[in-house]
């Protein structure tokens, strides 16, 4: 019970950081997901693989996709 209280207190305390952080991470993820769905040509891998990478690995996943995964036809 105290633990839960602690957690929610910690959460509230750090809201100024967490809100922009979550927004950015989700923004990046959603941008990557949309790009994966709209551009079915990848340098390697396939659609499912990239969707999993982009969604599961926060930050790193979308960056890896945008740098290595997306095909030349941008």
């Amino acid at each position: 019970m105290t633990n839960l209280q602690n957690n929610s207190q910690f959460f509230m305390e750090n809201l100024p950081i967490l809100i922009p952080l979550i927004l950015l991470e989700f923004g990046l993820m959603i941008a990557a997901v949309i790009h994966v769905l709209h551009h079915p040509h990848y340098r390697f891998g396939n659609k499912i693989l990239w969707l999993v990478i982009v969604v599961v690995f926060q930050i790193i996943g979308p960056v890896v996709y945008f740098v290595f995964g997306r095909g030349d036809q941008a």
Partner: peptide, 28 residues
């Protein structure tokens, strides 16, 4: 237009936010 700068910016923004957060979280 290649969105390269935007990606860099977002990643570095996330870094900037993570630093104080990690500092707070580590003792927890």
């Amino acid at each position: 237009r290649s969105r390269r700068f935007l990606i860099l910016l977002i990643v570095f923004l996330i870094f900037g936010l993570m630093n104080p957060l990690m500092a707070k979280l580590t003792p927890e």
